[in-house]
Amino acid sequence: MSKVVIFGNSGSGKSTLAKELAFKNHLAHLDLDTVAWKPIMPPERLAILESSKSINDFLLTHSGWVIEGCYADLLELVTQQADEVIFLNLSVSACIDNAKKRQWEPHKYASKEAQDANLEMLINWISQYTVRTDTFSKVAHEKLFREFQVKKTMYMSNVQGT
């Protein structure tokens, strides 16, 4: 059974690819957004210990899975159990274009309008990817990719093979 980790900038296509792989290969899917944040506004991260408990529960429940997100600190908790990592290393402009075309994500937002109200903030967040040095940054993702020792793939566009 496959165990795949997908990561990259916001808007890089992680959720889309994860859903496709999960469906095609009959894998459980975990979007780390669902275990990384407190359900409050403005958003605030959960303690890593709290997120890791949810992740461990998921891992114990499923023998085959795809886990996706932009949280290098949470991804480090699962990469040692993964068979494969996929780094969606798209340009910032491609991620912004994807974010503008993003369909409603009901597991994250109460409505498409609520999601769209966040678009300006999301675009600003995406644009900082290459200059940040936090757990969400390109630098953190490159380190995660470099240190993974099994099968790893990097895509520079949403068209696989490029």
Results as ranks from 00 to 15, higher is better:
Asn124Lys: 15
Gln115Met: 09
Thr79Val: 15
Ser111Val: 06
Asp134Glu: 07
Gly69Met: 02
Gln128Ile: 00
Pro106Trp: 05
Leu88Val: 01
Thr135Tyr: 01
Leu75Phe: 02
Asp134Trp: 05
Ile86Ala: 05
Lys100Gln: 14
Ser111His: 08
Lys108Phe: 03
Lys112Asn: 11
Phe136Cys: 10
Asn89Pro: 00
Thr135Leu: 04
Ala99Cys: 14
Gln115Thr: 02
Cys70Ala: 12
Phe136Leu: 02
Asp73Ala: 12
Tyr109Arg: 01
Leu90Val: 11
Trp125Asn: 06
Glu113Ala: 15
Phe145Pro: 01
Gly69Val: 03
Trp104Val: 03
Gln128Met: 14
Leu90Tyr: 08
Ala114Tyr: 00
Gln80Arg: 14
Arg102Asn: 04
Ser127Asn: 12
Leu74Cys: 03
Lys101Gly: 00
Asp97His: 13
Lys100Trp: 02
Leu122Ser: 06
Leu122Tyr: 01
Val66Ile: 11
Asp97Trp: 03
Ala82Arg: 02
Ala72Leu: 03
His141Ser: 05
Ala117Leu: 11
Tyr129Leu: 03
Glu68His: 10
Ile86Trp: 01
Ala110Trp: 00
Glu105Cys: 00
Trp104His: 15
Ala140Ile: 10
Arg132Lys: 15
Ala114Ser: 09
Asp97Leu: 11
Phe148Met: 12
Lys143Tyr: 08
Gln80Glu: 13
Gln80Gly: 14
Leu88Trp: 03
Met121Ile: 10
Leu74Thr: 00
Gln128Asn: 11
Lys143Val: 08
Lys143Glu: 11
Glu142Arg: 10
Ser137Met: 09
